[in-house]
Amino acid sequence: MGSEEVTRSVVEFAAQTGRLDLVSLLLAIVSTILVLGGVFAFLNFRSIAKAHAIVQAKETAEATAERVTNEYLQRELPDLLKAYRSFLDSDDVSNEAADQMAGAQDNGGKVE
């Protein structure tokens, strides 16, 4: 009896006794578990990546906003100080004039 005949007789015996059905069922169960595990892993990985991306985006946006604000202030503050120097040095600005200036700034430069 050669190895081919032994293999064939073992497979025939397993098929006759129902052992191949059990193996097929076990393989189907294992493959289903692997597929469900893969879907769960994908969804979990995606949610972790999204949370990490949100944190990184927030940090980057805050750093960029701080840098841009500092650059703007460094560029514009000397001009603003020059423009308001006369108001800062003088003590003779009345409350009414100060209220008008504040109102003009609040209204976009329109004096009421």
Results as ranks from 00 to 15, higher is better:
31 S>D: 07
53 A>L: 06
20 L>C: 04
44 N>Y: 10
103 G>S: 13
69 T>W: 13
30 V>I: 12
46 R>V: 00
78 P>R: 05
17 T>W: 08
9 S>M: 12
87 F>V: 03
56 Q>F: 05
34 L>G: 05
42 F>I: 00
9 S>G: 02
104 A>Y: 01
74 Q>L: 08
30 V>T: 05
82 K>A: 09
44 N>K: 12
25 L>M: 07
101 M>Q: 09
25 L>K: 14
25 L>Q: 15
28 A>Q: 13
4 E>D: 15
9 S>H: 08
52 H>P: 00
30 V>Q: 06
104 A>Q: 04
35 V>I: 05
60 T>H: 14
106 D>G: 06
34 L>A: 11
6 V>R: 15
96 E>A: 15
57 A>N: 10
14 A>W: 05
19 R>H: 12
65 A>K: 07
95 N>I: 09
65 A>P: 00
37 G>H: 04
42 F>T: 02
60 T>N: 11
98 A>Y: 04
31 S>K: 01
23 V>Y: 06
110 K>D: 06
53 A>R: 15
105 Q>F: 03
58 K>P: 03
39 V>I: 11
89 D>H: 03
40 F>T: 04
46 R>H: 09
97 A>H: 11
6 V>I: 09
103 G>F: 01
37 G>M: 10
6 V>Q: 15
16 Q>D: 11
40 F>I: 02
29 I>T: 06
48 I>Y: 08
98 A>H: 02
21 D>S: 11
95 N>W: 04
24 S>F: 02
38 G>M: 02
27 L>A: 09
98 A>P: 00
57 A>H: 09
79 D>C: 06
99 D>E: 13
103 G>A: 05
38 G>F: 02
102 A>Q: 08
48 I>S: 08
95 N>Y: 07
91 D>W: 08
99 D>W: 04
107 N>S: 13
62 E>R: 12
24 S>K: 13
8 R>A: 13
1 M>G: 15
97 A>M: 10
46 R>S: 04
44 N>G: 11
56 Q>A: 11
102 A>N: 11
9 S>V: 02
36 L>G: 03
39 V>H: 10
109 G>S: 04
21 D>C: 00
18 G>N: 08
104 A>F: 01
7 T>V: 07
100 Q>L: 12
93 V>Y: 10
63 A>E: 11
35 V>D: 01
98 A>G: 07
31 S>C: 02
85 R>C: 01
108 G>K: 08
108 G>S: 06
32 T>P: 02
71 E>I: 02
70 N>C: 02
53 A>V: 03
